[in-house]
């Protein structure tokens, strides 16, 4: 994996801003959905589609593509917006989110949109499927990689730990788990509801390589992914520290935005703020 040039970094920062604007527009049009996690993972999804993964939007079922699984399906808006902005489907389609007949279901459904790789929403299930895929690649001696994006709170599900144990057993170095470590869940702080720390140590104990990064800094995310891809003999976890609601000041750090969308007026404010940020990125480039 190559390092980012300054020019490419700026392009991706602009792209992440586009992805955030797409999230706000889609959620406002839908009238329901999950804002905070979607916004805070815009940089990770931009880095994945824009630099880290081997993929081709024109050939979503290309056999040798890297696989990206979104385990925490409720932040589907960020994946849809990133897919649209990287050419998987027209950006206008984002406005069909959660609407009757749309391919953009409230939670991702592979049968409706195969590039999603799987169907998700019930929490704690993505890593186990990623383990199966990574093992299949090993059995077939293929070099594609598997990336699984998880929330932090879904580490409260038992199945996730079964999968962690299994990835360690099979030395799945073609598997990278990326945790959206935003410290929030629907009912409050993860550390109040059911403490997860020391999260990295728990992965280490299960024979994983643990890498930390700033999940709202594309350069930091790419460096973490480089380390992950270079790891031999172990699955890797990237603990991506994020600010919930990142990019929209009235949402940032407020867990109550976990499961609700902005109304029309709030969406207008958010888009105004994001547009100003976009112009700053371009001015500073």
């Amino acid at each position: 994996m190559q390092s980012l040039t300054p020019k490419r970094l700026t392009e991706l920062q602009v792209k992440a801003n586009d992805v955030r604007q797409g999230i706000i527009e889609a959620l406002a049009a839908a009238g329901s959905g999950h804002s905070a996690g979607s916004l805070d993972m815009a940089d990770v999804f931009t880095a994945l589609y824009g630099h880290i993964m081997r993929h081709d939007p024109q050939k979503p079922e290309w056999a040798d593509r890297d696989r990206l699984l979104l385990s925490c399906g409720h932040i589907a808006p960020v994946r849809y917006s990133a897919m649209a902005h990287f050419g998987y489907f027209p950006v206008e389609e984002l406005l069909t989110l959660r609407k009757f007949g749309s391919r953009l279901q409230g939670h991702p459904e592979r049968v409706k949109l195969p590039a999603l790789e799987t169907t998700s929403g019930p929490l704690g299930e993505g890593l186990a499927q990623g383990v199966g895929m990574a093992l299949a690649a090993k059995l077939d001696k293929k070099d594609w990689r598997v990336y699984v994006v998880t929330s932090d709170a879904e580490h409260q599900c038992g199945l996730h730990w079964e999968a962690m144990m299994t990835a360690g057993k099979f030395h799945l170095d073609n598997l990278t788990c990326i945790i959206d470590r935003n410290f929030i869940q629907i009912d409050g702080s993860t550390e109040d509801i059911m403490p997860l720390e020391p999260l990295g140590d728990k992965y280490r104990a299960f024979n994983w390589e643990v890498i930390e990064c700033d999940g709202n800094d594309i350069a930091s995310i790419v460096e973490a992914a480089k380390k992950a891809a270079a790891t031999v003999g172990k699955p890797q976890v990237i603990v991506a520290r994020t600010v919930p609601g990142k990019g929209v000041s009235y949402m940032e750090g407020d867990y109550t935005w976990h499961g609700k969308p902005p109304n029309k007026q709030q969406a207008g404010e958010a888009l105004h703020e994001l547009q100003a940020a976009r112009e700053r990125i371009l001015a500073n480039a």
């Binding site: 696989r67 093992l135 690649a137």
Partner: peptide
Amino acid sequence: AMAGGLAAA
């Protein structure tokens, strides 16, 4: 869940 991943591949 793991079988689902294997089947997908």
